[in-house]
Amino acid sequence: MDATDLVRELGLRADSQRLRGDVEFLADRPRSRMREPEAMRRAEAYVTRELAAAGWRTERQPFDVRWRLGSADRPGSRAVALGLRLHRRLAGANLVARLPGGDSRPTVIVGAHLDTVDGSPGADDNASGVAALLEVARLLGALPQQPAVTLMIFDMEELGMIGSRVAARRARRAGRRVAGMICLESVGCFATGPGTQRMPPGFARAFPAVAAEVRSSGRRGDFTLVVHRRSTAPAAALWRHAAKSMDPPLPVVTLRDPRPDGPLGALIGLAVPPMNHLGRSDHASFWNAGIPALMLTNTANFRNPNYHRPTDTPDTLDYARLTTVSVATATTAVSWPAN
């Protein structure tokens, strides 16, 4: 089955009301291992139940790390790309789900973070990403042939991608090869009015073609941004094709991060500030570990006025478009192109 046929089939099965229900459950309160541990346990239990209902086996992978450089989980709409903080000790857990009876084929990881900043229920950041991941699980779990896909739900992204850094190292050391990773980061907010999409300072100079594309549409925040590197350019093109094959099609902007995978890419970002915005989620942990990855996002604070605020609530999201994000992600994970 080619990608267009798969989009059509999965689009018939996807359910925007399921996505809304997931977001409403998760985003009725803030979730944080340090500040709201009971809410995190409740969210973990919900995700595990939904994955089990879709046929996935979930393993809880605790971690305990010390003296890790990260960030603070402060509320507020302003993102600080280099707001560094040294964490003395952090104990958390990631969830890793696979379909039973897996084989040795290279796997594609689909991941999203579960935690929020202090005081925000995090409907867009990032219940939207977790809900899309759960819908991917339901769609792929119903396929007649088991896909080579692994699902990961990360802890402590808001503290500096702590959970995904642990997960990426474990994935690199594991015997099974990882073909690539898809990160779902703040994917539910869309704004169709002119001038609703902003860009970071220096962005137009660093990425003139992408800036021109955004301007040509009247700076409407109605698209999904797909951030990729050379290693994931074919996957980004596939995701774009899948999203545009839906009815109605979803506008997509692709942006290539010119840095190489591995630690060198992270170091280059320190010298070019606009690059830091391209690594503000869990995909960066996989990039730095040398694993090909791409990020799907609505650009967070550059579109969503509720970013990191108490007003990031389920009623502010677009569930029809979030459904398209889920279908395009499922299609790309199953059909991940070889480089």
Results as ranks from 00 to 15, higher is better:
residue 217 S to F: 06
residue 154 F to D: 14
residue 227 V to R: 06
residue 187 V to T: 13
residue 211 A to V: 07
residue 164 S to W: 06
residue 229 R to T: 05
residue 157 E to K: 11
residue 235 A to E: 14
residue 150 T to K: 04
residue 215 R to V: 01
residue 203 F to A: 15
residue 238 L to T: 03
residue 184 L to K: 03
residue 226 V to D: 15
residue 225 L to H: 05
residue 164 S to A: 11
residue 201 P to F: 05
residue 187 V to K: 04
residue 202 G to T: 00
residue 174 A to L: 03
residue 172 R to E: 12
residue 233 A to S: 15
residue 195 G to Q: 04
residue 170 R to Y: 07
residue 164 S to H: 08
residue 168 A to T: 13
residue 149 V to S: 05
residue 211 A to T: 01
residue 227 V to I: 15
residue 171 A to Y: 02
residue 230 R to H: 05
residue 215 R to E: 04
residue 193 G to H: 12
residue 213 E to I: 00
residue 241 H to R: 15
residue 199 M to Y: 00
residue 241 H to T: 00
residue 215 R to I: 00
residue 158 E to T: 00
residue 189 C to Q: 15
residue 213 E to A: 10
residue 198 R to D: 15
residue 186 S to N: 04
residue 232 T to Q: 13
residue 146 Q to V: 08
residue 165 R to D: 14
residue 188 G to S: 11
residue 186 S to G: 11
residue 188 G to D: 14
residue 154 F to P: 11
residue 210 V to E: 03
residue 241 H to V: 03
residue 248 P to I: 11
residue 202 G to A: 01
residue 188 G to Y: 11
residue 242 A to S: 12
residue 170 R to I: 01
residue 157 E to R: 06
residue 246 M to S: 14
residue 247 D to H: 04
residue 195 G to R: 02
residue 205 R to W: 12
residue 238 L to W: 08
residue 206 A to N: 00
residue 231 S to I: 01
residue 244 K to E: 15
residue 169 R to L: 03
residue 157 E to W: 06
residue 162 I to K: 08
residue 243 A to I: 09
residue 208 P to D: 03
residue 226 V to P: 13
residue 226 V to Q: 15
residue 247 D to C: 00
residue 245 S to W: 01
residue 153 I to A: 12
residue 195 G to P: 04
residue 147 P to V: 11
residue 149 V to E: 03
residue 243 A to K: 10
residue 206 A to C: 12
residue 222 D to K: 01
residue 155 D to G: 09
residue 148 A to I: 02
residue 159 L to W: 10
residue 207 F to T: 05
residue 241 H to P: 06
residue 204 A to M: 07
residue 192 T to S: 03
